[in-house]
């Protein structure tokens, strides 16, 4: 048993569901329906967090929703990337700079940075699934010497659904990482006019590039179907051990604290035991995911 770290709570907090108030200091439109919020802590220091953790963000009157912490710990403040899909996310999209939102967190486990050191890392993101990878990716770039190799495959349905476009351009210009961008093929084999990247789903790219499993770790997040097919290709075609694949799962959550009973897969609480799992763990779950 433990209390949350003292700095994760407001200075005079009464209970674990009492949120802190964060100030919106910047907005970046990623796609027509997706915005990145830059947030500042004004009621005390920012809590320590690690890449892969999440928080409960909300707006009084609209409610709370779960978002991954989408910026690396070494950046100032905190960023989240929000796609407008429902009541809370719509309310968030109506905010302006200077408005306040509620925050509880950081919650959940994180990517095992120390275990990843010395490895070749392959990040595979799909759509908004790039957000949970972003903090780790920037942390790895900041400490590039810790890793033998760094590659990113990032895919989206359409060009307008690629998030962090300005950062992707930056990544493409770097010589210390490999970048492959891909869009879902509308007509298989047909290039999309004006598109600088590839036109393919992710598994065929893996089959073609054949990144060897030797000393490599794959970190992937995206739609469930993409995660499943990527893992299948890596394990069955390329000979990866499921323990070499890390992913972060999305399940509906309310408390984030292992109480509300919503995010379980079997006896695993995704909010407490996850959201970061190896694919070996995922395969051991009751097949509900």
């Amino acid at each position: 048993m433990r209390r949350p770290a003292a700095d994760a709570m407001p200075p005079d907090t009464e209970h674990i569901y009492e949120p802190r108030l964060l100030r919106v200091t910047g907005l970046a439109e990623e796609t027509p329906t997706t915005t990145t919020f830059q947030l500042a802590f004004e009621d005390g220091p920012r809590p320590d967090f690690k890449c892969g953790q999440f928080g409960e963000f909300g707006l009084y009157g609209a409610g709370e929703a779960t978002f991954c912490l989408a910026s690396p710990p070494h950046w100032e403040g905190l960023e989240i990337t929000v796609k407008e899909v429902g009541k809370v996310t719509r309310a968030l999209h109506n905010l302006n700079e200077g408005d306040q939102i509620t925050f509880r967190g950081p919650y959940g486990n994180w990517f095992p940075y120390e275990e990843l050191k010395g490895k070749k890392l392959l990040f595979i993101g799909g759509g908004i699934g790039q957000a949970p990878l972003r903090g780790l990716l920037w942390t790895c770039l900041e400490n590039r010497g810790d890793f033998e190799q760094l590659d990113l495959i990032y895919a989206a349905r359409e060009e307008c659904e690629l998030v962090y476009e300005r950062e992707l351009v930056d990544f493409e210009g770097r010589d210390d990482m490999g970048v492959t961008l891909a869009l879902d093929p509308v007509c298989p084999g047909e290039p999309i006019p004006g598109w600088r990247g590839r036109t393919s789903f992710v598994p065929p790219i893996l089959e073609e590039e054949r990144p060897s499993p030797e000393n490599r770790v794959v970190i992937t997040c995206g739609p469930p179907i993409m995660i499943k097919l990527v893992a299948k290709t890596l394990i069955e075609t390329l000979g990866y051990d499921p323990a070499q694949i890390w992913t972060t799962l999305e399940m509906r959550m309310k408390c984030g604290l292992g109480k509300c009973g919503r995010c379980n897969i079997g006896s695993t609480y995704v909010c407490k035991d996850g959201p970061v799992f190896t694919y070996e763990q995922v395969l051991a779950f009751p097949q509900e995911f």
Binding site: M1, R2, R3, P4, E14, H15, I16, L257, G258, K259, G261, K272
Partner: peptide
């Protein structure tokens, strides 16, 4: 469940 890990105040 209310007192494992985080305590549900």
């Amino acid at each position: 469940v209310f007192q494992w890990d985080y305590l549900d105040d």
